[in-house]
Simulated scan of single mutants.
Amino acid sequence: MVGKVPSAVADRLILVGCGNMGYALLSGWLGSKALDPRNVHVVEPLADLRERAARLGIKVHETPESLPDQADLVVFALKPQAITAESPIYRRFSEQAIFVSIAAGLTIRDLRTLLGKARVIRAMPNTPTAIGKGSTVVFPGDGVQELNLNRVASLFAAGGPVHKVDNESVLDAATAISGSGPAYIFYFMECLTIAAHELGLPEELAIKLVKETVYGAGALALQTESEPAQLRRQVTSANGTTEAALSLLTAEDKLLCLIRRTTKAAFDRSKSLSANA
Protein backbone atom coordinates (compact mmCIF):
# COMPACT_ATOMS: atom_id res chain seq x y z
CA MET A 1 0.00 0.00 0.00
CA VAL A 2 1.20 3.48 -0.90
CA GLY A 3 0.16 6.28 1.42
CA LYS A 4 2.79 9.00 1.23
CA VAL A 5 1.93 12.25 -0.52
CA PRO A 6 4.78 13.34 -2.81
CA SER A 7 6.16 16.84 -3.14
CA ALA A 8 5.33 18.70 -6.34
CA VAL A 9 6.65 16.81 -9.36
CA ALA A 10 7.50 17.94 -12.86
CA ASP A 11 5.34 15.37 -14.67
CA ARG A 12 3.58 16.80 -17.70
CA LEU A 13 0.05 15.52 -17.23
CA ILE A 14 -2.96 15.51 -19.51
CA LEU A 15 -6.30 14.85 -17.81
CA VAL A 16 -8.96 13.82 -20.31
CA GLY A 17 -12.37 14.57 -18.79
CA CYS A 18 -13.02 16.73 -15.77
CA GLY A 19 -16.43 15.65 -14.51
CA ASN A 20 -17.03 14.73 -10.88
CA MET A 21 -14.32 12.08 -10.62
CA GLY A 22 -11.80 13.88 -12.79
CA TYR A 23 -12.28 17.09 -10.81
CA ALA A 24 -11.98 15.19 -7.52
CA LEU A 25 -8.63 13.77 -8.63
CA LEU A 26 -7.40 17.10 -9.96
CA SER A 27 -8.38 18.91 -6.76
CA GLY A 28 -6.58 16.35 -4.63
CA TRP A 29 -3.42 16.42 -6.73
CA LEU A 30 -3.16 20.20 -6.81
CA GLY A 31 -4.27 20.69 -3.20
CA SER A 32 -1.54 18.35 -1.95
CA LYS A 33 1.01 19.88 -4.35
CA ALA A 34 1.57 16.49 -5.97
CA LEU A 35 1.55 18.31 -9.31
CA ASP A 36 2.74 21.67 -10.52
CA PRO A 37 -0.36 23.31 -12.08
CA ARG A 38 1.84 24.79 -14.82
CA ASN A 39 2.41 21.25 -16.11
CA VAL A 40 -1.25 20.18 -16.14
CA HIS A 41 -3.55 20.26 -19.16
CA VAL A 42 -7.25 19.34 -19.01
CA VAL A 43 -9.35 18.40 -22.03
CA GLU A 44 -13.04 18.97 -21.30
CA PRO A 45 -15.66 19.77 -23.98
CA LEU A 46 -18.28 21.13 -21.57
CA ALA A 47 -17.76 24.83 -20.93
CA ASP A 48 -18.93 24.92 -17.30
CA LEU A 49 -16.69 22.00 -16.33
CA ARG A 50 -13.80 23.50 -18.25
CA GLU A 51 -14.24 26.82 -16.46
CA ARG A 52 -14.38 25.07 -13.09
CA ALA A 53 -11.10 23.33 -13.84
CA ALA A 54 -9.48 26.54 -15.06
CA ARG A 55 -10.12 28.15 -11.68
CA LEU A 56 -7.60 25.68 -10.23
CA GLY A 57 -4.87 27.41 -12.22
CA ILE A 58 -4.26 24.77 -14.89
CA LYS A 59 -4.45 24.97 -18.68
CA VAL A 60 -7.75 23.88 -20.25
CA HIS A 61 -8.65 22.74 -23.75
CA GLU A 62 -11.99 22.18 -25.42
CA THR A 63 -10.48 19.63 -27.80
CA PRO A 64 -7.20 17.67 -27.83
CA GLU A 65 -5.93 19.37 -30.99
CA SER A 66 -4.49 22.28 -28.98
CA LEU A 67 -2.54 20.08 -26.57
CA PRO A 68 1.27 20.27 -26.45
CA ASP A 69 3.30 17.60 -28.26
CA GLN A 70 4.81 16.06 -25.12
CA ALA A 71 3.28 14.38 -22.07
CA ASP A 72 4.51 12.04 -19.33
CA LEU A 73 1.09 10.92 -18.10
CA VAL A 74 -2.30 10.81 -19.82
CA VAL A 75 -5.18 10.11 -17.44
CA PHE A 76 -8.58 9.14 -18.84
CA ALA A 77 -11.36 10.21 -16.45
CA LEU A 78 -14.15 9.31 -18.86
CA LYS A 79 -16.97 6.82 -19.00
CA PRO A 80 -15.99 3.57 -20.76
CA GLN A 81 -18.04 4.40 -23.86
CA ALA A 82 -16.34 7.79 -24.16
CA ILE A 83 -12.87 6.26 -23.82
CA THR A 84 -13.66 3.86 -26.63
CA ALA A 85 -14.51 6.83 -28.87
CA GLU A 86 -11.86 9.30 -27.73
CA SER A 87 -8.73 7.34 -26.81
CA PRO A 88 -7.37 6.72 -30.35
CA ILE A 89 -6.85 10.49 -30.66
CA TYR A 90 -4.20 10.23 -27.93
CA ARG A 91 -2.12 7.51 -29.58
CA ARG A 92 0.41 10.17 -30.54
CA PHE A 93 1.56 10.29 -26.90
CA SER A 94 2.13 6.54 -26.61
CA GLU A 95 5.88 6.65 -27.27
CA GLN A 96 6.73 8.64 -24.13
CA ALA A 97 3.61 8.70 -21.94
CA ILE A 98 2.11 6.30 -19.45
CA PHE A 99 -1.67 6.04 -19.84
CA VAL A 100 -3.92 5.71 -16.79
CA SER A 101 -7.59 4.77 -17.06
CA ILE A 102 -10.02 5.09 -14.17
CA ALA A 103 -12.93 3.67 -16.17
CA ALA A 104 -14.75 0.67 -14.76
CA GLY A 105 -14.78 -2.46 -16.87
CA LEU A 106 -12.38 -1.58 -19.69
CA THR A 107 -9.49 -4.04 -19.42
CA ILE A 108 -5.83 -3.47 -20.13
CA ARG A 109 -6.33 -5.49 -23.31
CA ASP A 110 -9.24 -3.24 -24.37
CA LEU A 111 -7.21 -0.12 -23.71
CA ARG A 112 -4.08 -1.31 -25.51
CA THR A 113 -6.17 -2.20 -28.53
CA LEU A 114 -7.53 1.35 -28.57
CA LEU A 115 -4.18 3.01 -27.85
CA GLY A 116 -1.89 0.97 -30.07
CA LYS A 117 -0.32 -1.21 -27.38
CA ALA A 118 0.67 1.70 -25.17
CA ARG A 119 1.85 1.28 -21.59
CA VAL A 120 -1.36 1.35 -19.53
CA ILE A 121 -2.22 1.33 -15.85
CA ARG A 122 -5.75 0.88 -14.58
CA ALA A 123 -6.75 2.73 -11.42
CA MET A 124 -9.97 2.62 -9.43
CA PRO A 125 -10.20 5.67 -7.13
CA ASN A 126 -13.27 7.06 -5.38
CA THR A 127 -14.59 10.58 -4.88
CA PRO A 128 -13.21 11.16 -1.33
CA THR A 129 -9.80 11.47 -3.02
CA ALA A 130 -10.75 15.13 -3.51
CA ILE A 131 -10.06 15.70 0.20
CA GLY A 132 -7.30 13.14 0.69
CA LYS A 133 -9.65 10.57 2.26
CA GLY A 134 -10.14 8.24 -0.68
CA SER A 135 -8.88 4.82 -1.72
CA THR A 136 -7.37 3.75 -5.03
CA VAL A 137 -6.61 0.29 -6.39
CA VAL A 138 -4.06 0.09 -9.24
CA PHE A 139 -3.06 -2.63 -11.70
CA PRO A 140 -0.28 -2.28 -14.32
CA GLY A 141 -0.37 -3.68 -17.83
CA ASP A 142 2.51 -5.31 -19.67
CA GLY A 143 5.52 -3.10 -20.26
CA VAL A 144 4.92 -0.84 -17.27
CA GLN A 145 8.11 -0.64 -15.24
CA GLU A 146 8.02 -0.62 -11.45
CA LEU A 147 9.37 2.93 -11.49
CA ASN A 148 6.42 4.12 -13.59
CA LEU A 149 3.90 2.22 -11.48
CA ASN A 150 5.36 3.76 -8.33
CA ARG A 151 5.20 7.23 -9.88
CA VAL A 152 1.50 6.80 -10.70
CA ALA A 153 0.79 5.25 -7.29
CA SER A 154 2.51 8.17 -5.58
CA LEU A 155 0.37 10.60 -7.55
CA PHE A 156 -2.86 8.87 -6.54
CA ALA A 157 -1.58 8.69 -2.96
CA ALA A 158 -2.30 12.42 -2.78
CA GLY A 159 -5.94 11.35 -2.49
CA GLY A 160 -5.47 8.61 0.11
CA PRO A 161 -4.09 5.06 0.37
CA VAL A 162 -3.19 3.24 -2.85
CA HIS A 163 -3.37 -0.54 -3.09
CA LYS A 164 -1.42 -2.35 -5.81
CA VAL A 165 -2.92 -5.64 -7.01
CA ASP A 166 -1.50 -8.46 -9.15
CA ASN A 167 -4.78 -9.66 -10.63
CA GLU A 168 -6.79 -7.41 -12.93
CA SER A 169 -10.07 -9.13 -12.05
CA VAL A 170 -9.77 -7.63 -8.55
CA LEU A 171 -10.62 -4.25 -10.08
CA ASP A 172 -14.21 -5.29 -10.80
CA ALA A 173 -14.67 -6.11 -7.12
CA ALA A 174 -12.93 -2.88 -6.08
CA THR A 175 -15.30 -0.97 -8.35
CA ALA A 176 -18.29 -2.55 -6.61
CA ILE A 177 -16.96 -1.83 -3.10
CA SER A 178 -14.80 1.30 -2.98
CA GLY A 179 -15.49 2.85 -6.37
CA SER A 180 -19.28 2.81 -6.03
CA GLY A 181 -19.24 2.52 -2.24
CA PRO A 182 -19.46 6.23 -1.37
CA ALA A 183 -22.84 6.37 -3.15
CA TYR A 184 -24.12 3.49 -1.00
CA ILE A 185 -23.00 5.34 2.14
CA PHE A 186 -24.52 8.62 0.97
CA TYR A 187 -27.83 6.90 0.26
CA PHE A 188 -27.76 5.29 3.70
CA MET A 189 -27.15 8.75 5.17
CA GLU A 190 -30.03 10.13 3.12
CA CYS A 191 -32.37 7.45 4.47
CA LEU A 192 -31.13 7.87 8.04
CA THR A 193 -31.69 11.63 7.80
CA ILE A 194 -35.28 11.13 6.62
CA ALA A 195 -35.93 8.71 9.48
CA ALA A 196 -34.36 11.09 12.00
CA HIS A 197 -36.59 13.93 10.86
CA GLU A 198 -39.66 11.69 11.07
CA LEU A 199 -38.71 10.81 14.65
CA GLY A 200 -38.88 14.48 15.58
CA LEU A 201 -35.37 15.83 15.04
CA PRO A 202 -35.22 19.23 13.33
CA GLU A 203 -34.01 18.75 9.75
CA GLU A 204 -30.78 20.73 10.18
CA LEU A 205 -29.87 18.83 13.36
CA ALA A 206 -30.78 15.50 11.74
CA ILE A 207 -28.37 16.16 8.85
CA LYS A 208 -25.56 17.19 11.20
CA LEU A 209 -26.01 14.17 13.48
CA VAL A 210 -26.04 11.74 10.57
CA LYS A 211 -22.89 13.22 9.01
CA GLU A 212 -21.08 13.32 12.34
CA THR A 213 -22.13 9.77 13.21
CA VAL A 214 -20.96 8.29 9.90
CA TYR A 215 -17.73 10.27 10.00
CA GLY A 216 -17.03 9.27 13.60
CA ALA A 217 -17.81 5.61 13.03
CA GLY A 218 -15.53 5.49 9.99
CA ALA A 219 -12.70 7.28 11.80
CA LEU A 220 -13.01 4.92 14.77
CA ALA A 221 -12.94 1.87 12.49
CA LEU A 222 -9.75 3.14 10.79
CA GLN A 223 -7.97 3.93 14.04
CA THR A 224 -8.51 0.57 15.70
CA GLU A 225 -7.43 -2.95 14.79
CA SER A 226 -10.84 -4.28 15.81
CA GLU A 227 -12.98 -5.86 13.10
CA PRO A 228 -16.29 -4.15 12.21
CA ALA A 229 -18.24 -7.01 13.84
CA GLN A 230 -16.39 -6.45 17.10
CA LEU A 231 -17.01 -2.71 16.99
CA ARG A 232 -20.71 -3.39 16.40
CA ARG A 233 -20.86 -5.66 19.43
CA GLN A 234 -19.18 -3.00 21.58
CA VAL A 235 -22.00 -0.57 20.80
CA THR A 236 -24.76 -3.14 21.28
CA SER A 237 -25.87 -3.56 24.89
CA ALA A 238 -28.12 -6.46 25.81
CA ASN A 239 -31.79 -5.49 25.65
CA GLY A 240 -30.82 -1.92 24.71
CA THR A 241 -31.91 0.43 21.95
CA THR A 242 -29.17 -0.61 19.53
CA GLU A 243 -30.04 -4.28 19.91
CA ALA A 244 -33.68 -3.49 19.21
CA ALA A 245 -32.70 -1.74 15.99
CA LEU A 246 -30.16 -4.32 14.84
CA SER A 247 -32.60 -7.15 15.40
CA LEU A 248 -34.46 -5.85 12.32
CA LEU A 249 -31.33 -5.43 10.18
CA THR A 250 -29.87 -8.82 11.07
CA ALA A 251 -33.09 -10.87 10.99
CA GLU A 252 -32.68 -13.55 8.33
CA ASP A 253 -29.58 -11.65 7.15
CA LYS A 254 -31.87 -9.16 5.41
CA LEU A 255 -29.33 -6.36 5.18
CA LEU A 256 -26.47 -8.71 4.30
CA CYS A 257 -28.52 -10.21 1.47
CA LEU A 258 -29.38 -6.76 0.16
CA ILE A 259 -25.72 -5.65 0.28
CA ARG A 260 -24.68 -8.82 -1.53
CA ARG A 261 -27.20 -8.14 -4.30
CA THR A 262 -26.20 -4.48 -4.43
CA THR A 263 -22.48 -5.09 -4.82
CA LYS A 264 -23.03 -8.00 -7.21
CA ALA A 265 -25.07 -5.72 -9.48
CA ALA A 266 -22.17 -3.24 -9.60
CA PHE A 267 -19.66 -6.06 -10.10
CA ASP A 268 -21.65 -7.57 -12.97
CA ARG A 269 -22.08 -4.19 -14.61
CA SER A 270 -18.33 -3.54 -14.41
CA LYS A 271 -17.59 -6.83 -16.15
CA SER A 272 -20.22 -6.23 -18.82
CA LEU A 273 -18.66 -2.89 -19.75
CA SER A 274 -15.58 -4.72 -20.98
CA ALA A 275 -17.68 -7.16 -22.97
CA ASN A 276 -19.41 -4.25 -24.71
CA ALA A 277 -16.22 -2.29 -25.40
Rank of each mutant, 00 (worst) to 15 (best):
A130S: 12
P182N: 11
P202D: 14
G181H: 09
A153H: 07
V120Y: 05
A130C: 02
E204I: 12
A174V: 14
D166K: 07
F93Q: 04
G160M: 02
L192Q: 06
S154H: 07
P140R: 12
L205H: 12
V170Q: 07
L111P: 03
V170D: 06
V137L: 09
T136D: 03
L205M: 14
L106A: 09
L147E: 13
K117F: 11
E95Y: 11
S135L: 15
V144Q: 02
N167V: 14
R119T: 07
K133Y: 12
S169T: 08
V144W: 05
N167P: 05
A158F: 03
A174P: 04
L115T: 11
E204M: 10
Q145D: 10
I108P: 05
I131E: 11
S180R: 00
P161D: 06
A157V: 00
K117N: 13
C191T: 08
I185G: 06
A196C: 15
D172S: 08
F156R: 04
A174S: 10
I102Y: 06
A158Y: 12
H197F: 10
L106R: 06
R92M: 04
V100K: 08
D110I: 03
P128E: 00
L114W: 11
A103R: 05
L192W: 08
A195Y: 10
L171W: 08
R119D: 05
V165I: 15
R119P: 05
N148H: 15
V100M: 10
D110C: 15
P140V: 08
V120D: 02
G181F: 09
H163I: 12
A174G: 02
S94C: 00
L149D: 02
A104H: 02
N126Y: 04
D110T: 04
S101Q: 03
M124N: 07
L201D: 03
I194T: 13
K133V: 01
L106Q: 01
V120N: 03
A104Q: 04
P140A: 13
T127Q: 12
F188I: 08
A176I: 06
G105H: 11
V162W: 04
N148F: 10
N148D: 15
Q145P: 06
F186H: 08
F99H: 02
T136E: 08
E203Q: 14
E203M: 13
A206M: 03
T175V: 11
A130D: 00
S180G: 05
L149F: 15
T136F: 14
G159V: 01
Y187I: 07
S94R: 13
F188R: 04
G132Q: 11
A196I: 06
G160F: 02
R92L: 09
F156N: 01
G132N: 02
L111R: 00
